[in-house]
Nucleic acid binder design. Structure first.
Lengths: 316, 316
DNA sequence: TCGTCAATACTCAGAGAGAGTATAAATTGG
DNA sequence: CCAATTTATACTCTCTCTGAGTATTGACGA
């Protein structure tokens, strides 16, 4: 797929005239803005970390993305760079006519100082079980898996979902299943939003920090997409400064993926793909041998597009 | 990402109350329904192949997907099975207030007899250069690439796009770049829609069959997604009958991907991934040794979800 | 019965991934 | 100033996967 093109809104061409019986809806634009600071993935939030930047599409907005950028900048002071569309949801407005369509986006950024009322939050506050780099995260995931097995009981479909999502029974942990894991926890009542949405009193135990509405679900969708995407598309550089060491790059990937990587093999992978080039400088020394600084090779954009995944094609 | 979940509309939970200044928009639902008949990928169309099934979201529709399914069935008589969201576009209505938001979907199906007014069309009528299985398709792609190089002239950015998209200069043909190639052709005026949208007279040469509005662009988006997806997710089985031979499976993949595959290696790949199991029967003999029949293994859904792509993780 | 055709089975070399070890270049503490 | 420590970088060694080609099997038909 043309990723570069998908980041832009397509050209405006006329569409089929709709008959008059079509309902009208309000359009809400929601942004998941991700950055990484050292070892911590960050998400840009409002209202003490309970809301994602969002706002309605207005007449003055020339496109969906333009509207999104305007709202994020107004609410957080942060101008957006890389943006891609995530998913479009609909729900009926309660106690009112019409419906709201929510169009969610993933944006990648470098950390900055947000406006008052907005703040970067550690992404793992919302999904602590996703941090498989630390023993605590792994322990929490195991504990949640155990609770989910109890919840699943004798239903094999549920048991299998738990096994796949949490890497039980010899299956590996798959860091991409962020959304599937959150959905399991929601269904089992282990996400705080489940009781809230059912108008029940808060449960005695809830995993991770809640958000308002379905914003944590959108956050899970964004994280799943990002964790999948860094493996086949060099978007990780959207999160990096101009120059960086290979180990800083590795730790950024680790922060996003929530797993530890094998240093020599990571280095070999990056170098063999010609993703980076040396700047000729070395990092300001801390302890140990100083690391060389690298920058993203511009030509990568071109070459990466021609990579893709593999089928056993026959060559002429 | 949780693909199974993404195919469903998420649970309806309340969203942020929007201030009154939000614009309202009409919502249009558009479906790209794909099937494969022997060697030919098919797309479900209306109006002599110039329109995709589409219709406005109405109050009676309980969800976006429900609305989509209702429209497709009403217009074509074809009930939808597998459905996934593609992309959401916006454009201003000409000569009217408000805006239309178009939400496009990819659906996979098995061929059926559509209602009068609807018809399955060979997908390659719209994108003949995408059929790299045949010498004619490859020749057309080469001819278009030559025209595009002339159009690009001295602009290196354009030249590089042409090289990547059409596999020039030693680069391989990447079948996933359907949308990027269509966009190039549109920009260069080699797609009929370009002149139409610019209110110019029809050009002397136009590649592939046109569609109304931006429906061919949506079709390109769907094809790009499908070509990418069959490589890492067993969606191909949505297009297959209950039982099939391995070579029929291969030809279905070839029809979608537009490339020839290496038979022994394709067979090894399918078998090594435990995607299928033998039914015990053999296909009704034509010429040559009769082929064994296979069926899709249900357990695959579970196992595939745990696959994903690779990072050099470190194992405990 | 033999030739043809398509399905199925096997082989082999090279690339790549996982895992571990060795060396280099800096800081820090005696 | 030297040695211990720390971190970066380089190298090695399997084992699996993949691309590519060849061989065998089982049907039909002349």
């Amino acid at each position: 797929m043309s990723d570069v093109a998908m980041q832009q809104d397509p050209p405006l061409v006329g569409r089929e005239a709709l008959p008059g019986n079509g309902e009208v809806a309000r359009i809400e634009l929601i942004a998941v803005v991700i950055a990484v600071s050292a070892d911590t993935p960050l998400v840009l939030t409002r209202a003490e970390g309970t809301l994602l930047p969002a706002g309605p599409l207005e007449t003055r907005h020339r496109s969906l993305q333009a509207g999104l950028r305007a709202w994020v900048e107004a609410q957080t002071g942060h101008p957006l760079g890389y943006v891609e569309q995530l998913y479009t949801f609909a729900d009926r407005n309660r106690g009112g006519a019409g419906r709201t369509i929510s169009i969610s986006y993933l944006a990648l950024a470098r950390e900055s100082r947000p406006l008052p009322g907005a703040a970067w939050q550690d992404w793992y506050r919302y999904f602590p079980w996703e941090d498989q780099r630390s023993a605590e995260g792994r322990a929490l995931a195991a504990a949640l898996a155990a609770r989910l097995q109890v919840w699943a009981g004798g239903e094999t479909a549920r048991r299998e979902r738990v096994e796949v999502c949490f890497g039980l029974g010899g299956l590996p942990w798959n860091e991409e299943l962020v959304l599937a894991r959150y959905e399991l926890l929601y269904e089992a009542g282990l996400a705080g939003e489940a009781a809230r949405d059912a108008h029940l009193p808060p449960p005695t135990f809830a995993a991770g920090m809640m958000m308002a509405f379905d914003h944590r679900r959108i956050l899970a969708t964004a994280a799943a997409r990002l964790r999948a995407k860094i493996k086949y598309h060099p978007v990780i550089f959207e999160l990096m400064p101009e120059s960086f060491t290979l180990f800083e790059l590795q730790r950024t990937v680790e922060a996003i993926a929530g797993t530890k990587l094998h240093k020599p093999n990571f280095r070999r992978m990056v170098e063999s793909q010609n993703l980076v080039e040396e700047t000729g400088e070395v990092a300001a020394a801390g302890r140990g041998r100083p690391a060389r600084l690298y920058r993203f090779r511009e030509a990568v954009r071109r070459e990466r597009a021609s990579a893709g995944t593999r089928l056993p094609v026959v060559r002429a």
